[in-house]
Amino acid sequence: MLQRSDISFDTDDTGRFLPWLIAFMVFLAALSISGLFVLSDITRNLGSEFSNKITVQIPVSRSLKTDGLRKTETLRLLRALTGVKRADPLSTEGVQELLKPWLGDAATLEQLPIPSVINVEIDRTKNISVKTLRAVLLPKIPDILVDDHREWLNYLANTIRSIEIIAFSIVLLVTLTTVGTVIFTTRTSMGLQRETINVLHVIGAHDHYIANQFAIRAAWLGVKGGMLGIIVSVPLLFGFRFVIASLGTHLMPEISLHAAGWVSVVLIVPTIAIIAMLTAYTTVLKSLASLP
C-alpha cells in the first residue's frame, strides 16, 4: 500500500479480484478511446480531402478518337463553368492504379476498357453542385457519369458516427461497471473489516478518516489494474497499426494514433484510479452514516 493503513487490507480478498477487473475495463476503454481518435482523424481527413471534389467518368465508346473528343469536350465545358476551380484528367495509369485493389493485375491489361476519369474541384460557395454539372454535361455526352464525393462521404461519416457512438457507449459502460464493481467490493470489504471499523469509530475516528483509507486503497488498486490494462492494450494498438500498414492496400485509410490519442489512452489510468477512489470514498461515507 501507499501508506500505513489502520485497516488490514492484506487479508481482504477483494483486493485481489479488483485489479484484474479494472485491467480488463481499462483494456476495453483503451481500445475504444483509440478507436474514437482514429475514426475522428479519418472523418476529418476525408472531409478536408474530398468534400469539394467531384469525379466525372466518361465510359469508353467504340473508337479511341471519339473517346478523345468526348474527353476534350467535357474538359472544355467543365472549365467554362463558374465555380469549377480545377478539372484535371486522370492518366490511364492513374485509373489502373485506382482499380488495382479490386481487379489486381488484371487492371493493367491493355484489352480492359478503361473509362476516362476527370477530377473536378469545385467551390461550393459559388452555388455549384453535381446537379449543375449533370445539367451541363448530359445533353452533350448522354452516358457520362458524375459522382459527388460528398454523397458517399456523408454515408461514411454517418457510419463512422455510429461506430463512435458505440465506442462512447463502451467507455460509458466501462465506467459504470467500474463504479458498480468498486461499490460492491468496498461494501464487501467493509463487511470483512467491520470489527476494525467499529473500533476506529468508537475511539473517535472521523468518517472521513475511515473513508480515506478505503479510498487510498481503491485508488492504488485502480492504478495497479490500470497499468496492467495499459500494458496489454498498448502493444495491441501498435500491432493493429502494423497489421493494417502491412496489408499494403489503398482500401484501408491510414490508421495511426496521434499524440493526443496516446495521452488520452495513458490518462485512462489516473482517471480510473480517481473514479475508484471517489466511488470507494462515497460508498464508505454512506455506509458509515448508519453508525450511531
Binding site: S8, T11, V199, L200, V202, I203
Partner: peptide, 28 residues
C-alpha cells in the same frame, strides 16, 4: 474522543504493533 473504552475481548487490531494500536486514538 473524550471517552475511553477497554473492550471485553480487547479488540486490538492484530496487524498493527502494540505501539500503533495505542497510537490510534491520537492519530485519528
Amino acid at each position: 474522543r473524550r471517552i475511553g473504552v477497554v473492550f471485553q475481548e480487547f479488540r486490538l487490531l492484530s496487524h498493527l504493533s502494540a505501539f500503533d494500536n495505542v497510537a490510534l486514538p491520537l492519530r485519528v
